[in-house]
Design a binder for these strands. Structure first.
Lengths: 293, 293
DNA sequence: ACAGATCCGCAAGAGTCTTTGCATTTCTGT
DNA sequence: ACAGAAATGCAAAGACTCTTGCGGATCTGT
């Protein structure tokens, strides 16, 4: 792994504290959370960390002690210092400006796009969409071409949050069937970019005429979609290569789900819990988040 | 302490909370500490802040309330979000909208994550992966759970660029078949987050033992995957809700494809042209790139 | 200088967080 | 499969934090 050099001494530093014997399973789960969610770990209490790692709060304290600290507060203090410096220190390294690989250029472009998106962002639109989904009987997400990925992500996480959201990406036949079942209790979200697929526009108009609420996520306010959609979220999608970038669209999908998850927190919490139980039951996870049986 | 520069981000924001009447002397002293020592303010307790400002702890609470917050914890939470943002994305001055909705918070978090990713980014790793894909007979992308979306995007765009890249997300049976066909001429890219799906790890190890080149995109350097992978790309995936954020992972996928598209520009150009011709022929696009009918 | 109002510190009360002893479950080697 | 050891969850105890009522101190306008 070549992240070493440029990286946070953060991860290396933390892994170096692991005692010879290694860590027990649950302690390893806690360590994993420390590494993957340093922000929360820096601020959170033992209760929050325990929930994230799927362990008892006592295990959090014991893990901190196993890593050579007096307790959680002591570890957390070090964590803060390391994490904050990892945020600000390599600032200099970001000045690659001059030349760079296409990969690096793509990343910088995405960063810019996200900054633009953030600046133009209208919370109320996302809130409207989230509420519409929450109130709907069901939601259909149509997304063609490469944007199918964004639609799948949106639908997947929304389902995890406890709502009936289906991504339709398999082609016109499935699309036709899905739209045929829509009525005024439903919501349709069309995700599409510049060169709109014909069927997306057709589906949006058809859904609208059936009384469903229609929203669009796109990179250009096309009149065709504007006519059908109640609200439109504009995302910058310019990529460095021929391909439009999906990164900003994905960020919008995440924002919608984040908003959706707070509409009915109890419902979402129950749904997630049920999903975790299923994962455990099916043995899907490499490291189980077991709450203790 | 060089916190000065970093403070610029939220200085205006914080000053805007000051009520018409202005602040009393001691409250102003507290505010001064917040502005000049944001780091300590973000983490410290009322006791620490009171000492720094030379006031009583009660004054700290009252100052927070005078600024329009329920109390010190509420103010501190806002402070943290602003301060961390100013650390990781100082070039972005998007302080207009408040920390308000979860949707907006999600977006900002993604922006931070991307900034961190950009900083830690190692071009050579992405270049290695791109070249491996370009030289391979075929490439299999395995991605489970919500990360399937990233895998689908990567495979889709890579195919568009003219390479045989297949995303396997449909389940263990398909995964087993796909891995069974791998040999030393092939590449496998595993995309997964910390709670690795069991089958992802199995597939990666199996592919490795069959001689395929294996790469991983993940949010934690898990020993399980590290053993199988030639290179690992670490992406920050911390989201605001329960769900990990896919945005940074998507940015990496875009970067890989952007890099891949430049390995053999002629091949990619020909592939795109062919794809466009097909789209036209099938009448897929709402607005044709060539000319509208 | 005085009266009224405001500000500020003190201290108590309610709540939260962290640690640790104990019991149960899970793992390991024979 | 069994016995010992390790790990983990539960729950209580102790420490700390935040808020708020109250009284003394300071300021302002006359």
């Amino acid at each position: 792994m070549t992240d070493r050099a440029a990286a946070d001494g953060f991860e290396d530093w933390l892994r170096d504290r692991v005692p010879e014997r290694g860590l027990r399973p649950k302690a390893a789960a806690v360590l994993e959370v420390l590494l993957t969610q340093p922000r929360r770990a820096s601020f959170g209490s033992t209760v929050e960390l325990a929930q994230l790692a799927g362990v008892n709060i006592a295990t959090v304290t014991r893990t901190a002690q196993a890593l050579g600290f007096a307790g959680w507060p002591a570890l957390q203090q070090e964590l803060r210092a390391r994490y904050l410096s990892s945020l600000s220190a390599p600032q200099v390294a970001a000045e690659h400006h001059g030349v760079g690989s296409p990969g690096a250029a793509s990343l910088r472009r995405d960063l810019d796009s996200l900054a633009v998106l953030n600046r133009r962002f209208d919370e109320s639109v996302v809130a409207t969409i989230a509420h519409a989904v929450a109130e709907a009987r069901r939601t259909i997400v149509i997304a063609d071409g490469s944007y199918a990925a964004v639609g799948i992500a949106l639908a997947h996480n929304a389902r995890l949050a406890g709502y009936d959201v289906l991504a339709v990406t398999a082609g016109d036949a499935e699309l036709a069937n899905a739209v045929a079942s829509l009525d005024s209790r439903d919501v349709l979200i069309a995700i599409s970019f510049w060169r709109l697929y014909e069927s997306t526009v057709l589906a949006a108009n058809e859904a609208r005429s059936r009384g469903a609420r229609v929203f669009a996520v796109t990179d250009a306010a096309s009149p065709a979609l504007a006519g059908a959609a109640e609200e439109i979220v504009l995302v910058p999608a310019e990529g460095v290569a021929f391909f439009p970038s999906l990164t900003a669209g994905m960020a919008v999908a995440q924002a919608v789900v984040a908003q959706l998850a707070t509409v009915d927190p109890a419902r979402t919490a129950a749904s997630i819990e049920a999903a975790e139980a299923m994962w455990s039951k099916f043995g899907l996870l490499h490291r189980r988040p077991t709450q203790g049986t």
